[in-house]
Nucleic acid binder design. Sequence first.
DNA 1: GTCTATAACGGGATAGAC
DNA 2: GTCTATCCCGTTATAGAC
Lengths: 226, 226
Amino acid sequence: MSTNDTKDRIISAAEKLFAERGFAGTSLRGVTSAAGVNLAAVHYHFGTKDALMQAVFDRRIGPVNKQRLERLDQIEAAAGPDGPDLEEILEAFMSPIMELKRDLEGEGMMWSRFIGRVYTEPVEIVETMIRDHFEEVGRRFVAALATALPDLSESEIAERLLFSIGALSHTLIDLHQIVTPSQGAVQAGAPTLQHLVAFLAAAFRAPSAQPAEAHRETTVTEAVAS
Amino acid sequence: MSTNDTKDRIISAAEKLFAERGFAGTSLRGVTSAAGVNLAAVHYHFGTKDALMQAVFDRRIGPVNKQRLERLDQIEAAAGPDGPDLEEILEAFMSPIMELKRDLEGEGMMWSRFIGRVYTEPVEIVETMIRDHFEEVGRRFVAALATALPDLSESEIAERLLFSIGALSHTLIDLHQIVTPSQGAVQAGAPTLQHLVAFLAAAFRAPSAQPAEAHRETTVTEAVAS
DNA sequence: GTCTATAACGGGATAGAC
DNA sequence: GTCTATCCCGTTATAGAC
C-alpha cells in the first residue's frame, strides 16, 4: 500500500519508458525489469498493455486537470465583472503541468516527455483518454478566454489555444535536451513558464483575422489537452 | 525509374505508416504489403528499418529546408538595412512545410503527422537527422530574427523559436482531426499559415523578460527543426 | 531485381504451482 | 499476490533460387 507498491512501481517504470521510447517502442519485459517485478505482475494488476497505458495516463492527468479547474475557479472568483486577465488564465492552464514537471524531474527522469508525447501516440485509447479528460477543461478555458478577448470569435480562440498547446507540449518534450544536450542556452524550469505565458499572452492579443461580422457562433467542443 | 518505382513506393508507404503509428509501431511487413511489394525488397533497397526511416525523412526535409533558405535569401536581398520584417521571416520558415502539407494531403493521407511526430521519436538516428538537417537553418533564422528584434537576446530568440516550432509541429500533427474528427470548427489548410504567422509574430514582439544588461552573448547552435 | 523460405529472436498473454 | 514456464505469434534480417 505504500508508494513502493508493486502496482505503483510498474506505473512509474512504464511512465518513464513510455516517455523515452513511446508506447509501441516499450516492452512489458522492459517495464517489469526496470520496476524489479515479475513479468506476470503487470498482467495480474492491469490485464493488458493498453490498460497499463491508461493507468499511467490517469495517475498524472487527473490531478493536473483538477488543479487547472481549481485555479480557474479561484481567479474567476477574485476577478471583476470582466473576468480574469489573459495572463492569469494562461497561467492557470499551464502552471499545474509545469510545476509537476519541475517536481518530478528532481527525483527521476523527465516525466513530461510522456505527456508531450501522448498526442502523437496513435493508439486508439489515447483518443478517448484525451476526450474524456479534457472536455470540461477545454470548455471552461475557451469560455474564460472568450471573456478576456471579446474581439475574437470562439473558433479563433480554439485555434490559438491549439497553437498554445503545441508550444506547451513541445516545451514538455524538452527537445533541447536532445538536440543540444550539453548546452544550457535555453534554460528549462521555473522561468520557462513565465516566458511561455508572456509569449502566448502577446500572441493571443494579436488582432482578429476575421471580419467583424464573421463572429458566427461556433460550438467549440474542441477537446483540449496537455 | 518513374515515381512508381519500387523504392519510391516503399518510401511513400513507410511515410504514411510512420506518420500514423510511429516508427516502432510500424512493421516492415505492413509497409511492404501497403506498397504492394515483397518483404525482401525493403532489405534489398534500404538494408535496415533504420535506413528506411532515414530515407523517408530525407526525401521531404531536404527540399523543405532548401526552400526555407531560398526564401530567407530572397527577403533578405529585397529588404532594407534593417533586414526583413518579422512576419516575412516567420513565413519563410513556415510556409514551405505548410505548403507541402497542403499539396500532399490532396493525394494521400496526412503526411505532416510524420514530421510533427519526428520530435518524439526516440530513435537514435533522429537525433543526428535533426542535427544534420537543421543546423544551418537554425543558425540563419535565429540570426535573421535577432536583426528584426534587437531588444531580445539570442537565447530569448532561441527559446521563442522553440515555442513556435511547437505550435507549428502541433499544427502539422492535425490533432483536431483526431480529437474532433467530424467538426470543422478549426479549419486546416491555407488560412492556418496566416493565422499562425500572425499569432507568433505578436508573440515574438512581447517585451524581453531579461534585464537589459543581461544581453550576454550566447552562442546559439541550437538546432532547429520542423 | 525479385521472389520463397527460413533463421533467430522478442513480443504479449496465460496456466498453474506456490 | 507472486512466481516459473510456456504458448503462440509477429518481428527483422538473411540465404539462395530464379
